[in-house]
Computed example of a mutant assay.
Amino acid sequence: MTGDGSWGHDGLAQAVRSRLGLGRLLPLGGARDGAWITEEAAVAVLRSAAAGVPGAVLGKVRVDRATADAPARAGVPAPPSALPPGPLRVGAEAEGVAGAEPIPAAVERLRDALFGACAQALGLDVTEVDVRVTGLLEAPPNPSPVVGPDRGAAAVRGPEAEAAAAVPGVARLTGVLGAAVHRTDDHVRVEFAVAAGWRALDVAGAVRAAVAAATGADRSVAVLVTAVELS
């Protein structure tokens, strides 16, 4: 809150994201990519990757900046209170499974799976994955499907929305932080979900290019991935 007891712009955005369960808004790619993804969407992809690792059961996951050094400056305006571009760190908790194999080997495979998902499925610049073992299970739990966030679909209206919705790999437009397309005099932000089987950063780049072509050279473009379909 501000000194007068009201929510400031950043504080209000943070409160809204917390209420909706989005977590942090993570930089997707580098400073020139103009793309972000919700922590909720990214963690769902990580859980899906971890589900295929025997001998370790993934618990809590948190993604944050990897360093306290000054971050890079984004090439376009970021969504409200989003993390700036820069290396990220994944902190995770996991439980080992008794008798499956040595716990250190299972944890190392889990780390590899998380690293791989960050790079290959998402496009996050993750330089560190820290897995902390918090317990030991006598038997593996019954497997349950990992379900990504379902933020619903937003109406497709206007040239920017139509251009974004037509990009291969876009499952649907969403409107988590407001309308699916947020416009100002010199900037456009588009929110969408990525279809299963597509790398989030690649789709984000294609959406930015399509929206830039539709909106004209007088506006910069940023994109926000709010969900990634898992199947």
Rank of each mutant, 00 (worst) to 15 (best):
residue 87 P to D: 00
residue 204 A to G: 09
residue 7 W to L: 15
residue 16 V to S: 10
residue 106 A to Q: 11
residue 162 E to H: 11
residue 226 T to L: 06
residue 47 R to D: 07
residue 176 V to L: 06
residue 230 L to C: 08
residue 6 S to I: 10
residue 211 V to P: 03
residue 138 E to V: 11
residue 17 R to M: 02
residue 218 D to R: 14
residue 20 L to W: 02
residue 198 W to N: 14
residue 168 P to F: 06
residue 204 A to I: 00
residue 224 L to D: 00
residue 62 R to W: 01
residue 105 A to D: 13
residue 46 L to F: 12
residue 147 V to P: 01
residue 25 L to C: 05
residue 77 P to T: 05
residue 49 A to L: 08
residue 174 T to M: 00
residue 26 L to P: 10
residue 212 A to Y: 00
residue 107 V to G: 05
residue 226 T to P: 02
residue 61 V to S: 00
residue 8 G to S: 15
residue 73 R to C: 10
residue 64 D to I: 09
residue 122 L to G: 03
residue 161 A to L: 02
residue 4 D to C: 12
residue 90 V to K: 06
residue 109 R to E: 02
residue 185 D to Y: 10
residue 82 A to R: 02
residue 129 V to C: 12
residue 144 S to M: 09
residue 201 L to V: 06
residue 82 A to F: 03
residue 187 H to W: 13
residue 153 A to G: 07
residue 111 R to L: 02
residue 77 P to A: 12
residue 122 L to D: 07
residue 122 L to N: 08
residue 174 T to E: 01
residue 124 L to Q: 11
residue 216 G to T: 06
residue 79 P to S: 12
residue 64 D to Q: 13
residue 123 G to R: 02
residue 214 A to C: 01
residue 148 G to N: 04
residue 208 R to K: 12
residue 65 R to M: 04
residue 212 A to I: 03
residue 116 G to E: 09
residue 112 D to L: 15
residue 157 R to Y: 12
residue 176 V to E: 14
residue 180 A to T: 01
residue 174 T to R: 00
residue 62 R to C: 04
residue 34 G to A: 13
residue 136 L to N: 10
residue 64 D to E: 14
residue 66 A to I: 06
residue 182 H to D: 15
residue 202 D to N: 09
residue 140 P to A: 15
residue 173 L to Y: 00
residue 147 V to K: 04
residue 195 A to G: 06
residue 122 L to V: 09
residue 74 A to N: 11
residue 208 R to D: 08
residue 142 N to A: 14
residue 123 G to L: 01
residue 24 R to E: 10
residue 51 A to T: 03
residue 104 P to K: 03
residue 74 A to D: 12
residue 122 L to Q: 07
residue 157 R to K: 14
residue 2 T to N: 15
residue 169 G to W: 06
residue 23 G to V: 00
residue 224 L to C: 03
residue 94 A to R: 07
residue 48 S to H: 14
residue 4 D to M: 10
residue 173 L to M: 04
residue 112 D to S: 15
